[in-house]
Design a binder for these strands. Structure first.
Lengths: 133, 133
DNA sequence: ACATTGTAGATCAGTTATATCCACAAATCA
DNA sequence: TGATTTGTGGATATAACTGATCTACAATGT
């Protein structure tokens, strides 16, 4: 079980966007070069973030992507859910009674992880990044 | 991102094994029928649990699988790791500085989940199951 | 108009997950 | 010993998913 590379790209792109000056959009070409993927592929990924309302895109000269919401309001979980979907990690494959006890355990575990990812905002990430430089 | 069906089968098999009387091994045929997969496929999965030291197998008449360790000592995480492997959920795909801040966040989140899965033993699961009947 | 930039569609290769069948090894028992 | 039962390993098939690219098109600014 692993997060997809698409999630990897999405998170890193968000990292670049929170670090960039907020007034000027960043082009997908630049973002794609930094991560060494084709612009069209990265665009597909970022379009999901656009539809989730985290960033906005602008066509034409001086177009690109920029944050839409405040970085304090964007969590890791938001980004991951936008790319991976929100389905649960586990679906009981058997039909034994109304509530599978295994399912309950795994779902609680998943919630612990999500809680942590929900509490980590992009703003905090930007802060961390500055300190490490 | 999802746990594999193999993990699903492994967890359910363990559920059956902790509920079964400990003296008599349970045959793979019976276990496979309950979960509606072929015995050979299930056997492959269970062999991983054998190699991880959780259960033991016996060939020949009256053979089958039974718990090896005490059910109090077997956690959800043990089983999941035996099937899914122990690799991390996230590997930074970029080369930006020694420690990717994204990686750190995701790994901490993963640890929260693992902590919960480590604290849930098969013995507790068996207890839960009894209560729900 | 023209250049720039994001988007949608088609497509494709590679990998992984799921699953089965068959042949074989190991153990029991007559 | 020989027959039967039961787990294991190998080969294989297939379906689904991931990762990725190219081309054509839509939208925007000069």
């Amino acid at each position: 079980m692993k997060y997809s590379k698409a999630t990897n790209y999405a998170l890193h792109t968000m990292l670049f966007l929170v670090a960039a000056p907020p007034d000027k959009p960043v082009g997908v070409q630049q973002l794609a070069e930094q991560q060494r993927v084709s612009p069209t592929y990265l665009s597909k990924i970022l379009t999901k973030l656009v539809k989730a309302g985290m960033i906005e895109s602008a066509s034409g000269a001086n177009g690109g992507y920029r944050l839409k919401r405040n970085s304090k309001e964007i969590s890791f979980l938001d980004i991951i859910h936008a790319i991976e979907g929100t389905a649960s990690l586990f679906d009981c494959s058997l039909d034994h009674g109304p509530e599978c006890p295994i399912q309950q355990v795994v779902l609680l575990a998943e919630e612990k992880m999500e809680e942590h990812l929900r509490n980590q905002t992009m703003a905090e990430l930007a802060q961390k990044m500055k300190m490490s430089l």
